[in-house]
C-alpha cells in the first residue's frame, strides 16, 4: 500500500477523533450542578440541572400537581418547582435531572423532570413481603 495513503488516513482519523472529542467536550455539559448554577445563574435562561433529591424536601400536591423539592450536590442546594407528575423512578435520595429556567425569585422552574438511576440491579430480597408492604403503603395513600 502506498505510504501517502496511510499517512492521509492517519491524518483524517486523528482530525476526526479530535473534532469529536473537542466538540462533545465543549458543547456537551449535559447538566450543571446546583453549585455551578448558584455561581452563575441568570434569571430566565434555560438550564439543565442535575443532582440528588435531598431527603425530606419532596412535597407533591395531587390536586394541583404542584411538585416541590430541593436538588443538592453536597456543596449547594437549589429549590425546584414543577407542575406535573414525576417519572416512576423519581424520589428522595435519588438522582434527577431537570430542564427549565432560573427564576428571579430564587428557585428553579422545571418544565421536565428526568429520573437518573444507578447501574445496580437487585432482586427483591423477600419478594412477597416487599411487594405486600409496598401495596399497603400505596393503599394507605402514602406518596411516592
Amino acid at each position: 500500500m502506498r505510504p501517502k495513503f496511510i499517512v492521509g488516513g492517519i491524518v483524517i482519523a486523528a482530525a476526526l477523533a479530535y473534532m469529536i472529542y473537542a466538540g462533545v467536550t465543549q458543547s456537551a455539559v449535559y447538566f450543571v450542578t446546583p453549585a455551578e448554577l448558584r455561581a452563575s445563574a441568570v434569571a430566565g435562561k434555560a438550564y439543565r440541572l442535575g443532582g440528588l433529591v435531598v431527603p425530606g424536601s419532596l412535597t407533591w400536591e395531587p390536586r394541583t400537581l404542584d411538585l416541590r423539592f430541593t436538588l443538592g450536590d453536597g456543596t449547594a442546594t437549589v429549590a425546584v418547582h414543577h407542575k406535573g407528575t414525576p417519572p416512576d423512578l423519581f424520589g428522595e435520595g435519588r438522582g434527577a435531572v431537570v430542564e427549565g429556567t432560573w427564576s428571579a425569585d430564587g428557585y428553579f422552574r422545571a418544565g421536565l423532570i428526568l429520573a437518573k438511576h444507578s447501574e445496580e440491579y437487585k432482586a427483591p430480597h423477600d419478594a412477597s413481603a416487599a411487594g405486600y408492604r409496598e401495596l399497603i403503603r400505596t393503599l394507605q395513600g402514602a406518596g411516592r
Binding site: 488516513g9 483524517i12 482519523a13 476526526l16 477523533a17 469529536i20 472529542y21 462533545v24 467536550t25 456537551a28 455539559v29 449535559y30 447538566f31 442535575g50 435531572v97 428526568l114 437518573k116 438511576h117 444507578s118 447501574e119 445496580e120 440491579y121
Partner: peptide, 26 residues
C-alpha cells in the same frame, strides 16, 4: 471501516468522560 471504529470507545466511555443521564456500564 477502520476510521469508524474510533467511535466504539467513544460510545463506551462517554458515560465516564461526560455527565450523562445514562448510568455507567453494569
Amino acid at each position: 471501516g477502520i476510521v469508524a471504529a474510533l467511535d466504539i470507545p467513544l460510545v463506551h466511555f462517554s458515560v465516564y468522560w461526560w455527565r450523562t443521564l445514562h448510568q455507567p456500564p453494569t
